[in-house]
Structures are given as C-alpha cells and as structure tokens.
Design a binder for these strands. Structure first.
Lengths: 388, 388
DNA sequence: ACCACAAATGTTAGCGTTAACAAACAGCGA
DNA sequence: TCGCTGTTTGTTAACGCTAACATTTGTGGT
C-alpha cells in the first residue's frame, strides 16, 4: 500500500530513477457460490452448480430448537422486554445455530409496513443525482429503511408509470423522485398515490400539489453572480441550462435578479448542460474579440464551464485574465480544471439526508420541513477582478 | 424549449446582440400529498396532514366486486389462460375501479420468490460504479426484478455485513456487489450466503470462490500502451491507482506486460485515483525538464489524467507535443479536457446488463458466463507521435 | 335428451409472521 | 395453604396470496 498520500513516487531505470517492478497477478477463475450456514436444517452444500437451496429455517423451527413457542422467539427478535434472560439466551443460541433470519415478507404482510423506501432516479446519472441518491440511501438505512431503486430514461412517461407501479407493488412506505424536468414534475403532480411522494429537485411554480426539496438554486445563482459583481464585472453572460429543466430556469432567474439589483443587464445564452454547449459559447466569445474590457460568464453547471474553458484555452483567451468563469455544482473534478473552477457548491449528501427526514415525517403523519438546502461558493482560480 | 441543439444563441443589449429576457418564476409552496384512487374501498382524501391510509383493496374484494372467486382474479393477474374473456374483462374492470395492486409480500410469502435483486455499492460513487448500477437496474427491471440498493463506505466491514444482512432479510434472490478493493473481495469470499453472489469488479487472484465480472482491465491497459507504442513512444510512465484496488493492479500489470513485449521498460508511479495525484506527477515531470525527447504517460483513470494535464498546462509543458497522455474510463468530461483526452472506454451499461444476465443464470441453476467485457480506445487530442 | 369430457371457476390449506388474548407460573401476604 | 398479584410463556387467528385439488359449467356426439 504505497499509494498513501498519493505522492508520485519516482522510479529508477533508463531515463528515470527507481522504477517499481509491477507485481504479477493470476488468472480469472470460475465462480463458486457457497451455500447457507444454517446447518441445523440439514442441507446440501453444492459448490458450483448450486442446487436449489432448502427452505430457510422458520421461527417455529427456532422455537422448537429452543424449546419455547414461536411467539417467544418473536419477542426476542423484536426486543420485547419480559423474556427471562435465560430463555432469551437459549433462543439466541438457537437462532445463531440455525442461521435464522426473519422472513420480511411474512412480517410485512401482517404488520402492513414494508420498511421500504422507493427511489426513482429520472434521467441522468450525473454527479448530483448520484450523490443525492447515496445520501438518501444512507439516511434511509440509518432509519432502518431499505431502499428500492428504479431508474428511468428522461422523457419516458411510460417508464415513469412503471417505476411508480413497481414501488407501489412493493408496498413502499414513501417515494422519492430525483428529477428536475418540468414534464416529469407535471406528470407527477397529476398522479394520485397513497403514499407520500417527494421530489428532489427545484420547485416549479404552478404545481402546488407537488412536494419538492432541493438546494436553493436561486440563491446559488445569486451567490455566483454576486461574486462576479463584487469583482467589478458589469458584462455578464449567463450560460443557462435547457429550459425544460426547472433548476436551469431557477438558476437563470436568480442570476438575472441579482444582476438587475446591481443595475447590470446580463446576456442570456442557452446551453444544454453538456460541455459541448459551453465550448460553442467559448468559440463565439473568442471570435468576437473585444479588447475593451473583461467579461464574466456564469455557466449553469460545471460541465458547460469545462467546455467553455476548453474553447477559451484553445483560442488563447486568458482565464481569468480576460474572461472570468463561474460554474455550478462543484463536481470533484472542478478543482482541477484549467484553471481551477470557481463554482457553486451543492451539498447533495445533506440534501439526501434532509429529504429522507422530510419524507419520513410524512410517513409518521407529521409535517415535513421542506426548507431548501443552502449552497455555498467555492472560490478558485477561474475568476478575477474585472479591472485586472 | 430553445435549448435545442445546444447552440449558443447570442443576445442583444449593451455590448452584445439580442439578449433573452429571463422569464420569471414563482415561489416555493408547501407540499401536499394526494391519496389513493381506489374509491371503492371508501377512504378519506386528506390533502395535507395525510391521515393513515385505509387498507388497500385485496384480491378478495376485487373478486367480490367482479362476482367471481379470488382465485380467478389471481389467474387473470398472473396471465393464466383458461379464463373466459368476458370474465377477464369484468375482473379487469373491477381491478381498475378499485385501484387494486397485488400484495407482493403475500405473494413472496407463498411463492418463496421475492423477485428482488440486491445491489451493494461499495465505496465510491464515481462515474463507473454509478453507470454500472444504472445498467444493472435497467437489466433487472427488464427481467421483472426489482433492485434493492445498499451503499457502504469503503473499508467498513461492519457496514458490509449489515448490507448483506439487509439483502438476506429481504430475501433477495441474488446479490451483486459493486466493489474493487481487495479487502472487500477477501471478506466476500469468506462469506457464506445461500443466494448467488457476483462481484462487479476485477477478479483478484487467489480467491477462487469469488465470481467476478468486469471490463477487461488488463486488455484496456494494453490497448492504451499499445497506442502509445504505435505512436513511437519508448519512454512511458504508468501512473497507477492505489494498490488495494484490484483494477489498479490489473491495469498496471497489463501495461507493464505490453511494454515488456515491446522491450520497453516503463516507470511505475503510484497515484490514488484523485486528480491531485496526477497533478503531483505533472509537476514532477515539469520540474525535470528533459529536452531530449517525448514522454508518454498512461494514467490509470481519467481523473488523474485531468490533474496531470492541469499541472502540465500550468507549467507550459505542451500536450501532446512534449508529453502524450492516455487516461482510463472515458468519463463524459474527458472529451472536453484541455486537450481532449485519449482514453480507454469501458462500457459500463453493457457490463451491468451482462452481470444481471450472469446472476440470473445462477438463480435459474444454469452456468453463468463471466467473460469480461472488452474495452475500446477513444483516440483524441492528448496523444501524438513521439517524433512530433 | 343424455353422457362424456374439457373448459372454467370455486374451495381449501398453507406460507411465516405479529397481535391479541389466554394460560401458567412465580412471589407474597394472610 | 390459599388466593392474589404480576411476570413469563403459550394459543389462536389473521394478513393476502398461490398451489392443488374439487366442483361446476359448457360443448359435442349420439
């Protein structure tokens, strides 16, 4: 384990000191799926072909093994008080020996609580949604909920219905939808489901029946623009995301408002989230070479900012000397763009946690707190004073 | 929806033509969770506080509604032949009217098949694992399986055991583990579970009881190095990943072997997957300015390649003029690095699909095909002839 | 009209758990 | 010793579904 601090360790040979001999590794092998532990139930241990496994031991079997009734076993498993320590021990021993695991299907059937949280991830599997998903799963797990995942391609309403259907069929206690497009939201708000549904994404106006939660997009955009304004920029270009994405619209709105408050009139250019669209803007900027002063671009996400930087670099337009660039998201790579990218950071993990908190509150019949998560600004090397 | 082709549309005002007025949006609103549709069962429709929902209608109720026995309803739902069309229609009408949904808990209880696939995502939530996850979910869905997600922080064995436990408690029919670190693998191979387990990740030697599947890392590395050799490079630096990651080791091995076959003696430098470690190597390369010829670096992932490019750019070392760089992964951003990155592409979606195929074969008692998925090379702007 | 036979539908018995209640057992004062 | 508490354990009945079998209904040949 020499990777340690990630330091680049130099090596010897020909034209470089101290080469490390690469250690050799062996060949791929055929799999082998082992079988269960519950020896008591007496089953075969097939190494390879894996014969159909025997029934898992039931509570009744554990009970018999421990010489008690199944109900007492149930009590132990569910941590009820009022079981003699000695009995409890006997039961726990039996459980361990038989490798017993509670049958959640049966439990769900009788308790009418599945302990399942459905998560529907719509569209892209980019950094943001993914981190949010991880945060959600983590928070759910801490509340002893298990996460059911369904992904859908963007724009496929049929798939969406199926996804909801899957969740409902599995009796999830709540559904979280990670989505940002307006059509998904519209569809969602027209939907009637008997469990709490919460959308992780910006709140679109005009859809009052929708519970949404997100990082405050408007505020994030304001943060970015305010930063540019403070640096003295007056010529600001807003590279927005596609209009069907609600967060794109909100970022644009926030940026425009912040500009307006400072008496600045920004130029709005539409991108599509991809680096390619940023790249195009970059070329355009480079072509209209304007020596009369500094320009600032607020790109609505880091990917577009990356394309923009790429184009500007190609055209030898100095960043941040001639053009300042601010991104949005703070993806892990942003710090290593050329130059490192000043960008708005969204704490997706925190968002995921809060979403679960909110949706669980709903499940418990309480009121959910849907306050947006505040963004922060990561100041780096792509922005500089306008009077540079 | 003007984003369309993502073209950067220019605007008017002060110093730029044709600015687009940002449309205004409204305020956030309080949530509102709607209630079920099954009107027949007669329940309350709470708008906000959401009172405990009434029982969902059961098969028996549907049967009664349609004037048949519940078994006939079951037959219709499960698509059995031998139900008179007329009866079927009546039942389907009743189902629609009551908003009936099958209770999977009950179904699982009696059939002993949960239709659940457990996916454990270990460690990072980067592009690769995430795309694979999406592929797995998609493939599972197409086979009418539902995906259960559990994430764990790397190195946390306790969490790992819990994750397996969660899956087993939910009676998943198979488990897919997305992991690459040796310790996770070692733990896994010592584990005894009564359902098929397959690891998505490179196959470590010495753990014969482990079924693994991945993109062919060795071949990918060879592809990258072969490309460099074909360009005439003889001075090759391998920026590897951390040693505990099996794929890091395999990439290094493949690269070393390919070099050896060409009589080239590479320098191996250890990185840690982060752009930072690539950056460090970049500085080191820049400092030891060697005018005597071109250098080539094979970075074991795109993130490190990014850091490397960043450092080289900063130090005004020309890429690919003085140094050629190849990455690994082909993350979406790679195309827009400066310069665009030549890198090894892994088809994670395909990988996900194949993994599900394999694990489902196991479930059906058939033999799984664990052939690794072949990688391809994306040739871009970061590599050039050594004799440039 | 009647029987034979197939097609369509109905009945019954679990699956493994929890909830609700019932019983047995201990301890304790009279 | 008896009854009265409480504590600990056991019994029974769902939960909603499918599998297996039983029954009814329909169809065609005679």
């Amino acid at each position: 384990m020499l990777e340690g601090r990630g330091g680049a360790r130099a090596a010897e040979p020909p034209w470089w000191p101290g080469a490390v001999p690469a250690q050799s590794r062996r060949v791929l092998r055929y799999p082998e799926v082992l079988q269960g532990v519950h020896s008591g139930a007496g089953e075969h241990r097939g190494l390879n072909g894996m014969e159909k496994r025997n029934r898992r031991p039931s509570m009744a079997e554990v009970a018999q093994h421990a010489g008690v009734s199944h109900q007492t076993v149930s009590r132990v498993i569910n941590g009820f008080a009022g079981v003699r320590p000695q009995t409890k021990e006997r039961i726990e021993a039996a459980i361990a020996e038989l490798g017993y695991r509670r049958n959640n299907a049966a439990r769900t059937l009788v308790t009418r609580r599945s302990g399942l949280l459905g998560v529907i991830a719509a569209g892209s599997f980019l950094y943001g949604p993914t981190s949010t998903l991880a945060g959600i799963e983590e928070a759910a797990r801490h509340r002893s909920y298990t996460t059911l995942l369904a992904t859908i391609r963007e724009g496929a309403q049929q798939e969406f219905e199926n996804a909801i259907g899957v969740c409902l069929d599995r009796a999830v206690e709540a559904i979280v939808v990670i989505a940002a497009q307006e059509d998904v939201m519209r569809y969602l708000s027209s939907l009637s489901v008997d469990v709490p549904v919460i959308v992780v994404g910006p709140d679109p106006h005009e859809l009052p029946s929708l519970a949404t939660m997100s990082v405050d997009q408007n505020e994030g955009a304001r943060l970015a623009v305010r930063h540019l304004l403070e640096l003295g920029h007056r010529r600001i270009v807003l590279l927005s995301g596609p209009e069907r994405w609600v967060d794109a619209a909100q970022r644009t709105k926030g940026a425009v408002e912040e500009c307006a408050a400072a008496g600045v009139d920004p130029v709005v250019v539409h991108g599509d989230w991809t680096p390619a669209s940023g790249y195009r803007l970059g070329r355009e900027i480079a072509e209209r070479a304007e020596p009369e002063g500094a320009l600032a671009v607020f790109a609505a996400n880091d990917a577009m900012a990356l394309g923009l930087l790429s184009a500007l670099h190609e055209a030898r337009v100095e960043v941040p000397g001639r053009v300042s660039v601010v991104g949005f998201d703070d993806i892990p790579e942003a710090e290593f763009f050329t130059p490192s990218l000043t960008t708005v950071r969204q704490d997706f993990t925190e968002l995921g946690h809060r979403v679960v908190e909110a949706v669980m509150a709903e499940v418990d019949g309480q009121e959910a707190d849907l306050t947006p998560v505040p963004p922060t600004l990561s100041r780096r090397g792509s922005t500089a004073s306008a009077c540079g």
